[in-house]
Design a binder for these strands. Sequence first.
RNA 1: GGAGGGAUGACAGAGCGGACGAAUGUACCGGUCUUGAAAACCGGCGUGGGCUUGCCCACCGUGGGUUCAAAUCCCACUCCCUCCGCCA
Length: 435
Amino acid sequence: MIDLVELRREPDAVKAALARRGVSSATMDEIVALDLEHRRLLQGAEGLRAQVKELSRQVGDARRLKDAATAEALSAKSRALGDQERVASEETDAVGATLHGLLLMLPNVPDPKVPDGIDESDNVELRRWWVGMDEGSPLPTYANHQRVPHWEIGTQLGILDMESGAKLAGSMFALYRGAGSRLIRALGSFALDRHGGDYEEIHPPSFALSETMVSTGHLPKSVDDMYAIERDGLWAIPTGEVPLTSLHRGEILDEAALPVRLCAQTACFRREAGAAGRDTRGLLRVHEFDKVELFAYCTPAQADEAHADILRRAEELLQSLGLTYRLLNLCTGDLGTASAYTIDLEVFSPGVDRWLEVSSVSWFRDFQARRANVRYRTSEGTTALVHTVNGSALAWARIWAALVETYRQPDGSVVLPDVLAPYLGGETTIRPKVS
RNA sequence: GGAGGGAUGACAGAGCGGACGAAUGUACCGGUCUUGAAAACCGGCGUGGGCUUGCCCACCGUGGGUUCAAAUCCCACUCCCUCCGCCA
């Protein structure tokens, strides 16, 4: 949620910044008008309430003096004012609810570093990395045996079974088996072991209350992208960011304790409602995948470094896995609702010949903290909203895909990087089953 | 799932219809005393909102209700504890 006080102080600047993200000036004008109206009504209602309270005190005084007549007269007066107050409060609350509803739908103010753009094609590529990279070429050279899509490799080796996934849960649900299953498990352990020391490891619930979903900005706006468990009023989390952001909801943290760094591997559930028929082969886009998330609550002054640290760690994982990747500065049109600035990491899939998003490292400023009401006490004794920062490290389904393609051998087997050996029982080679 | 008990400030804990945003203790911050510290004593010490910046309003698990007036009474819900049942 944006800062209403800032909107009052600098309406034109906030309007201009949000216009970059497609928020109409009519919407902003409506919000400003509602805010004004709400405060006007609030003054009236609170004035009435103050009068009722004062009269009630006088009734008490009269009763104590055994002056029943005065008490009754004051009661009657207060009763009448109380009726007015009820009406005024209802009107105030209705306007306040409308205002709040509009504010909840508003995206975050983009940072000046964010480039203008309509969609993902306007994202700005910052740099690329691959093993033994040279400035001369845009990509490493891949052999023909690496130019096989992971769903074919998965079937050949018996390690990915999309058909069975569909049989159990419908299309776009993956089922890994054998060495494939062990690989997906290995990746999570690998990342958690690397970062769990500096970022406290959390294993949160996979479901969340509506309140929790509102805190991150996933509700109300992205309601169609979420799986709902309606009978119990729960939502399947789309990312570990959801529970981690709400871990300290409503709390005031000590400044000395910041940054609070957390990490979690969770299942991530996405309906992909708007993506029917797009990129649906294999693991390109699935309804459920495992992901390790790195997260920090920090002060505004710590935010840059907190963001850089998560980005560094995500890159370091990709480098240690020897995968080709690039960094994108997301444009205004592709930025997530709650984010002020996001760097995406995309891994190159030689078998599909495409870049696949495997991480978004985002800075939310105080947008989520305001919704979740997470504050810290400053050294001056005042309170201030924290900043939240998070990033995936990493989304494993697509990493799995890039790994089996990148490390496919001429004989059709897959030889995985040695860094994973401890998590694979020492066996880094996946061979076709002998039938 | 059933029965009972509970939820109040950072913590402990009183209050159970009227002057209560809330006693008291601990913790914390400042001061006196001290070479220094401790102890003792004195003072301070919740969060948010509105506007005429001095006042007003809200908040005692959450949401409704009763009343001139609710932390206090009534209803529903949530969570925690104990016991029973069921279960990995």
